[in-house]
Every structure is written in structure tokens, then in C-alpha cells.
Simulated assay, not measured.
Amino acid sequence: MSLTAGQGRFEGAVALVTGGGSGIGAAVAAQLVGEGASRVYVADIAAENVRRRHGDDPTMISRVDVSDPEAVDAVMAEILAAEGRLDVVVHAAGVDDPESKKIITDAAAAGTPIDLTANLTDAQWRRVMSVNLDGTFHVVRSAVRAMKPKGGAIVVIGSSSAFDTLIGYPHYAASKAAVHAFCQAVAKEVVAFGIRLNLVAPGPTETGMAARTPEELKVQWVNNTPVPYATSDEIADNVLFLASEQARNVVGAVLLSNRGRFTV
């Protein structure tokens, strides 16, 4: 009989969760602990968030900016030195752009066209790309190096916005679409080393990022029914499935988790 959620699917595992101080990453870390992981390393640029969220769990906390490849490699080296292996990596670190969200909201309220791309700064573009895309490259590359001797599972948090793009949010959508393509290409390569790489593409989810989304942008409908936001735990359920042996035949998948807002 196969194991289900809550039955110790990760008994004795060593895991790393980036962006684990809040939202989806924090929910993933907590669920890994609850399902028997012997050690969960939690990396977040806001280390204090991690300490407040995880307390005395069997976690090791590091302040890591995923846009810094040396910092990412350092935490991987720390894990291997302490544990001798790394079984699961969940990359949940990412950023949005609150300035762009305000422009979208103001235009909607005024009934005027959204005019963002012409005014998008290089700094705004680079911030989103350096964390979302470059950060994914740094984490996945380092995880592959760590896992090649023994195999493992990597799950990356993408976004449904890569498919259902939001007007006025081109840099975020582009970063996540690139993350999907990068990870699917890597997945085909690293399966030869016993490494499974998959993605979860959440729709709107109740996280700190969502809290910065103006209310006017939140309500969407499917078949005349309002679609509620997912909880972080619901997305974490999907992540743990892909990281577990229950998904041993799943490689390079992008799992849509958006309550049917759209399909591809």
C-alpha cells in the first residue's frame, strides 16, 4: 500500500527549502518536518522570518539571497558537510513587483489603459529576473551538483502567470515562463543521474505576495463562480507529492494548481 500525506513519506530525509520564511516555502518546510524529515534546512533572505515561523522545529536556518550564486553554493556545501547527502530541494524563493501592481490598480480605477511597459525601469526588470530566473538557475545548478552522486527530488515553484499572463506584469510573467522552460530542459538531462525535477505553477495563493495585491485585482470568476485563493498548505500538498516517491514516474511536469481558473 502506498503512503499518503501525513504517513511519513519523508522519513529520515534531508531537505532544503528556499524562501522558507513565509508563504508556500514555510508551509512546505512545516509539512516536511511533519512527514518525518530528519533535517530541513530553511533558507530565506529574511532570516528572522524563518526563526519566527519555525521556532524549535528540526530546521537549520540560513540567510541566503538566491540571486547570489556564492551564497547558494555555500549553503549547499554546509548541508553536504553536515549530512553527507541532500534528498529534497524545494525552491520557493521569489519576488513580485508592488510598484507595477499599483500602476495596474490605479489605471483600472481610473478606467484608463494600463501603460506600464514603456515606463518599466531597468532596475525593476533586473530585480525580478535576478531573483526569479537567475535565482532558480543558481539553486537548481547547485542542487544538481549536490545530488548527482545519490539522486534526489527537486521541486520549483513556478507560476500560472507564465500561461495566463496579467496585463501590465510582463517582467514577472516572463521570469516565470523562463523558469518553466529552464527547469523542463534540466529535468530531461538530470533524470539520467536519478534526479527528478518538477514544478508547481500556483494560481493566486494567500501569501505575503498576495497581501500586496490590491483587492480590485483579486476577484476572478470561473463559470460564474468566484474562485477563492489557495492556501499555502494546499500548494505545499502538491509540492510534497512531486517530491515524494508517489511521483517517481513524473519528470519535467508543470502541475497547474489554480482551482480551474484556466487549463493548458
Rank of each mutant, 00 (worst) to 15 (best):
R39H: 14
G8E: 03
A71Y: 02
V140Y: 01
A177R: 14
T225D: 03
R145N: 03
V200N: 00
T165F: 08
I103H: 11
A46V: 14
E234G: 00
A173Y: 06
P149E: 12
A46Y: 14
A26Y: 02
I24A: 07
P170T: 06
P202T: 10
V75E: 07
S160R: 03
A211K: 13
P98C: 04
A46L: 08
K150F: 01
V191N: 07
T231K: 00
D164H: 12
Q124F: 06
S22A: 08
F10L: 01
V227L: 12
E245W: 09
I195N: 00
P58F: 05
D233T: 07
G23R: 04
N224K: 11
G55H: 14
V64M: 08
E216N: 12
K101W: 15
V264M: 01
D44I: 00
A236I: 00
A185K: 11
R141M: 00
D134V: 14
G12E: 10
A13V: 03
I24P: 05
T205W: 03
E189F: 04
T105S: 15
G94A: 09
I61A: 06
T105Y: 14
W125C: 01
D56F: 03
V75A: 07
I45H: 00
M147Q: 15
V200L: 01
L166R: 08
G84Y: 10
N249W: 05
V90I: 15
E216K: 10
E234K: 00
D56C: 05
A143G: 09
E48R: 00
A13H: 15
G111C: 04
S22W: 10
D65V: 00
T121C: 06
D57F: 02
T213P: 02
G21Q: 02
G34K: 04
S161M: 08
I167T: 09
K188Q: 10
H54L: 12
V190A: 12
Q7C: 10
V89G: 01
V222F: 07
V222C: 04
R248H: 08
Q124W: 09
A13F: 15
R63H: 05
P58R: 11
G23Q: 02
V140N: 14
N119P: 06
A178P: 01
G84C: 13
N224F: 04
V128K: 09
A243N: 10
G260W: 00
F193A: 13
D134T: 13
V33A: 12
E206Q: 06
T165I: 14
R63Y: 04
T59F: 13
S175Q: 03
D233N: 03
F163M: 10
R141L: 01
R261Q: 11
V90K: 11
L240P: 09
L80P: 08
P202H: 08
A82E: 15
Q124E: 14
V186D: 05
I45C: 06
L242H: 04
P228E: 11
V50R: 04
V156Q: 01
N49S: 02
P226R: 11
L86G: 06
F241V: 01
V131T: 15
A27S: 08
E216I: 15
A146I: 11
F10K: 11
L199E: 00
W125H: 04
S62I: 02
A118V: 07
A178C: 09
A192N: 07
Y229Q: 01
V17D: 07
S160F: 02
F10M: 08
